[in-house]
């Protein structure tokens, strides 16, 4: 009922060790948002049906609405707040911004992290591999196309290529 005594865990969040106390029935989603102030992680259903709350758990994208906070002790959690470093955006953040892959921006952190995990294991994914990897994240604004293009562009840049958006993707056919 929210008045039970709190539990404390130690884990790593965005590369920094953190200790946090919270009601023991809380999900990682709630711990991040409410007890650590990391509201970049969003939620759309709390039942594992939309992908909006995706975070990285030991580098793997998972649904933070279905991971118990207590189960994260000793693990490494990555959120959207950890993607940029030293004031510099991650290449995916750059391309999502440039291509308009974030419209309302609500599902965006989840797509970014899922894409980040994809590129970590597959630096040159095909369009179909991108679609498969992102098939657990719902977006209602973009129709996903700008998201695919942003992932492809960031992947190329992360491979060291000097890629730019195509004219067609920004101005139409």
């Amino acid at each position: 009922m929210g008045n039970e005594s709190k539990a404390m865990i130690a884990f790593t969040v965005n590369g920094e060790s953190a200790e946090v106390a919270f009601a023991p029935h809380k999900m990682l989603l709630e711990v991040l948002r409410e007890d650590l102030g990391l509201t970049g992680t969003k939620h759309g259903c709390e039942l594992g049906e939309c992908g909006t709350c995706t975070v990285l758990l030991d580098g793997t994208p998972v649904l933070s609405c279905l991971v118990l906070g207590l189960a994260c002790a000793g693990h490494d959690v990555g959120t959207v707040e950890g993607m940029a470093s030293a004031g510099k955006l991650h290449p995916l953040q750059e391309t999502f911004a440039d291509l308009g892959a974030a419209q309302c921006g609500y599902c965006t952190p989840a797509f970014l992290l899922t894409a980040q995990a994809l590129l970590a294991g597959n630096p040159q994914p095909t369009r179909d591999e991108i679609k498969d990897a992102l098939a657990g994240n719902l977006c209602r604004c973009t129709g996903y196309i700008k998201i695919y293009e942003a992932v492809e562009l960031a992947a190329a840049r992360m491979r060291g290529e000097s890629a730019e958006p195509t004219r067609e993707s920004l101005y139409g056919a």
Binding site: G48, G51, T54, T60, P61, V62, L63, L66, V67, T114, D132, A133, A135, G136, N137
Partner: peptide
């Protein structure tokens, strides 16, 4: 389900 759920 989804890739995310299959990770869990």
């Amino acid at each position: 389900s989804t890739p995310l759920l299959r990770n869990m």
